[in-house]
Amino acid sequence: MRGIVKAFGAVEALRGADLTLGVAEVLGLVGDNAAGKSTLMKILTGVHRPDAGEIVFEGRAVAFHSPRDSRALGIEMIYQNLALAPNLDVVGNVFLGRERTKRVLPRVMEWLDERRMDAETRKILDRLKIRMDSVRAPVARLSGGQQQAVAIARAVSFNARVVVMDEPTASLAVKEVGKVLALVSELRAKQVSVILISHRLQDVFTVADRVMVLRGGRGALDTRIGDTTMDEVVKYIVGADTGGLSHLASGR
């Protein structure tokens, strides 16, 4: 993504942001609340269209008019809260919106092919080394970490090349955070690229290859994890090294 600009009315959410993501790379995307993270991701997933700038995917310039377009290229976003239907079971959620069916009466009636979806779901979970007692339990009964795993399995089942995760560990118990982060590494091992949006810098430093800081709608830092420290990243987030406090006071 190069030089992305997006304004909502008088508010400039993005002012020429660049973002690069390598194959099988985990990028930590951090920044303050109004830094433009979610706007940038919504442009990447086709929810919003940029006012200026371009998106190049695997060497080709692309334009997304809806989430469907980005999904067709293998870009999947896992939202914080609206990813799953709590009353449906694991299989139902993984296949929501593209259920496998079998013909009962040709052209007239198609029934859900539960056995096939069941088997495919187990295969995906196995591939990601996700352990689950039953794929037939309503996801409301699963722990937060397991629900996150179901959402990730769902994204992967679309043959996703890029998975964007919005605060995947924000509401998890400490014990489960590790499992979700292990899943992120598993995705990378499967040649899937991941953009991890997180307020928890320790998560980013545990699992990411690179970290990018957005501030005021622009990239403030983009570096390999090994070349920086949490302290430095925090400084870029709040903008202390560029006179951030006076910057805030000036009202920009």
Binding site: P67, Y79, N81, L82, A83, L84, A85, P86, N87, L88, G92, N93, L96, G97
Partner: peptide, 12 residues
Amino acid sequence: YAIGGNEEAATY
């Protein structure tokens, strides 16, 4: 069922 459970998830 999906709409009743989480309309936004169904939409997405």
